[in-house]
Design a binder for these strands. Structure first.
Length: 494
RNA sequence: GGUUUCGUGGCCGAGUGGCUAGGCAGCGGUCUGCAAAACCGUCCACAGCGGUUCGACUCCGCUCGAAACCUCCA
């Protein structure tokens, strides 16, 4: 199977052939969460989008090192007097150690990401554990002459940098606009220029999170950790850097500047950005207060939710949109995703039952519609990870399966085996859907159900519909659906 | 104001210079004791106005509308 993977590079704004720097290795860095609150639907988007990338690169045979950071140092808070650390602020409110809070929310993050079947990255470095690397990077930038120190803080000199480099090339911004448009905030008079950003901030006495450095006690600027940790684990030049579109400026723009200033050349080959989840057309985010946490989705405990939505429903919902499009949340859309996913999984089960055991040993090199289906799945993934198209192809597969089960269409055994292989590969391995209802009591349940259905069949034969319906209704309450067909009854669990 | 995008049928969402996206919902039918499920058929589109073209939803321009970023945010 030939695979020419094309990735949309934000830097060039076009799709480019993916050619890893050191095949068969591939390096990917993605900006992870700041752990000071419960993860919400917005956090699920990049996690799942780049999980898809991770899974597909693995499927293609690359040896992938996927690094996603945990921000536990905190960023400056503009609306507070002294530019306090976000995590430190929360700590004072709750009378907890900052690290206690970071630990708590990091754990929560992993729990919910795990529920969404998001694979754990290869390395999940924490900003607080990489202070030395960050301080060294600041020093490198100072040595290169692209930063200056004022009163124990170090700032990046954007104006000087842009004389020899292009600050703004990722986000398309023009330096003059930045200088004239950037709002001036308190305690920024230290900066030579509005567009300059902090590499290292001096810690005020009340600031809890602080680290010693050559410039005095302080804490790193908020763009620094990603530059320091990505290059530490992936090298001076690596393949993919991802994150949310909202991080494009200034975060990623500044990362580029920091790396070029410290290293002397670009560090990222492909920049990838996922789009936002919206609610009523607006970005779902912490600051707008319009977010719904994953916990609330899973339990249905939020005023704007009509019901609970399972983790796989959420995952499927996200994958039904392309990662670079906005995705609008609504109950209707989520319910549609829930039903669609159910249909897909039911189709897979039907297929498994159609295939005789043991399956034939040899898989003849076939052609025709099933291979076309497989080809289109690959083509979709290769076209910048177009998961909605893959899903459409899988639905086409379901239509074939159901038609075959209804004997309105014939599928050969090799065709069915190939179809199952497509589902196993794309639905489960690459899209990362897992069947939530499967459990290890399957055999017991299966035996019991055979018995129940046999008894019900007797009553049906004597046209005792009362008993028959009573059994069916009772099973329905247990979320088991009985389907009566020509050749007897079958059942399925919700 | 600047930067980057977007505007697709009842809803969510792909895609393309001429060929059915897909899902959910609706309608009609097949099947069924009745259902459910499934299958078949069907309805509903490409913001508006110009331009390029044999032909545009797709390219270009303008208008209107929306969003993200410019301040912590996935």
């Amino acid at each position: 199977m030939e695979n020419q993977l094309f990735i949309h590079n934000t830097l060039t704004r076009r799709k480019e052939l993916f050619e890893p720097i050191n095949p068969p290795f591939a390096g990917m860095y993605v900006c992870g969460p700041t752990v000071y609150g419960d993860p919400h639907l917005g956090h699920a988007r990049p996690a799942i989008s780049f999980d898809l990338v991770f899974r597909y690169l693995l499927h293609l045979g690359y040896k992938v090192r996927y690094v996603r950071n945990i921000t536990d140092v905190g960023h400056l808070v503009a609306d507070l007097d002294e530019g306090e650390d976000k995590i430190a602020v929360k700590a004072r409110v709750e009378q907890l150690e900052p690290m206690e809070i970071a630990q708590y929310y990091a754990d929560r993050y992993f729990i919910y990401m795990n529920a969404l079947n998001v694979k754990r990255p290869s390395i999940e470095p924490r900003a607080s554990g990489h202070m030395i690397e960050q301080i060294l990077m600041v020093q490198k930038i100072l040595d290169a002459g692209y930063a200056y120190e004022v009163n124990g803080s170090v700032y990046f000199d954007v104006e000087k940098y842009s004389k020899s480099h292009e600050y703004g090339k990722l986000s398309g911004r023009i330096l003059e606009d930045l200088i004239s448009n950037t709002r001036s905030l308190e305690a920024q008079d230290e900066k030579r220029n509005n567009a300059d950003f902090a590499l290292w901030k001096k810690a005020q006495p009340e600031h809890i999170m602080r680290w010693p450095s050559t410039w005095g006690d302080g804490f790193p600027g908020w763009h620094l950790e990603c530059s320091a940790m990505s290059t530490k684990y992936l090298g001076d030049y690596f393949d993919i850097h991802g994150g949310g579109m909202d991080l494009l400026f200034p975060h990623h723009e500044s990362e580029i500047a920091q790396c070029e200033a410290a290293i002397g050349h670009e560090s990222v080959k492909y920049w990838m950005h996922n789009n936002m989840v919206t609610i009523n057309g607006q970005k779902m985010g912490k600051s707008l207060g319009n977010f719904i946490t994953l916990d609330e989705f899973f339990t249905g405990t939020h005023a704007s939710l009509q019901q609970a939505y399972s983790p796989m429903t959420i995952r499927f919902f996200i994958l039904q949109a392309h990662y670079r499009s906005t995705l609008d949340f609504s109950n209707e859309a989520l319910q549609a995703a829930e039903k669609g996913l159910k249909k897909l999984l039911a189709g897979y089960e039907t297929l498994v039952k159609l295939i005789p055991t043991p399956p034939p040993l040899s898989l003849p090199e076939g052609e025709g519609r099933i291979h076309d289906l497989q080809r289109s799945c690959y083509a979709s993934m290769n076209d910048d990870f177009n998961s909605p198209m893959v899903i459409a192809s899988l639905f086409e597969g379901v239509r074939l399966i159901n038609s075959a089960a209804d004997q309105k269409e014939s599928l050969s055994i090799p065709e069915m085996v190939l179809l199952k292989n497509i589902f196993d590969t794309f639905l489960f391995d690459i899209l990362g859907i897992r069947d939530e209802k499967s459990n290890d009591q399957g055999e017991l349940l299966d035996g019991l159900m055979q018995l129940v259905l046999a008894i019900r069949q007797k009553s049906r034969e004597t046209k005792d519909w009362g008993t028959s319906d009573q059994i069916r209704d009772a099973l329905q309450k247990l979320q088991i659906t009985v389907k009566d067909g020509k050749d007897g009854s079958s059942w399925g669990k919700e």
